[in-house]
Amino acid sequence: MGDSNVTRRSGKNQLLDLYLTFAKIGATTIGGGYAMLPVLQDEIVTKRGWATESEIMDYYAIGQCTPGIIAVNTSTFIGYRKAGILGGVLATLGFVTPSIIIITIIAFFLQNFAEYPVVQHAFNGIRACVCVLILDAVLKLGKKALTDYRCVLIFVAVLAAALFTPLSPVLFVILAGVAGVILMPRKKPEKTGDEKASDAGGKEGTS
């Protein structure tokens, strides 16, 4: 692998790193795209610093109202921002690799996979864990993202609407975008944006 060419080697390593990291995330995302968040926060934001927490929330929001699977959209976003088109493709392929392997094995050998008692017990435990991890992530992100009462208002409205109405999340995301345009304080919009970014960056750097 051309040890002499340091930059190329580090480029290749970065792509491999992207692929493997997202394979790890794919293997531990249990129960749909949202379950990816706690692991994403740990692996991408805390350990590797590839994205900030507010960026990840942006990606989720975009992933929600664009076509395709949210987890795939988020993987592509992070990979692409990190290492271009190849990065986006490899991050996404990494994310789906464990799924393809596991599901293929199950489809061939374990027709009644979901009915095995061992599997059911394991997943009852995992689900209890995953809901804690997701809600903990929401609490942590909330402290940083819900900076004023307008944000809290939007948060509560969307939470309630998602829990108690059968409407599509796409609609909530679009309405929230409109609400942002109407509600965002005019006084110092740029400054708050910068403050938020540097604040998040600083906290991630130290922790």
Partner: peptide, 9 residues
Amino acid sequence: GLRPASLGL
């Protein structure tokens, strides 16, 4: 507007 909505979802 999107960030709190994303968090709500």
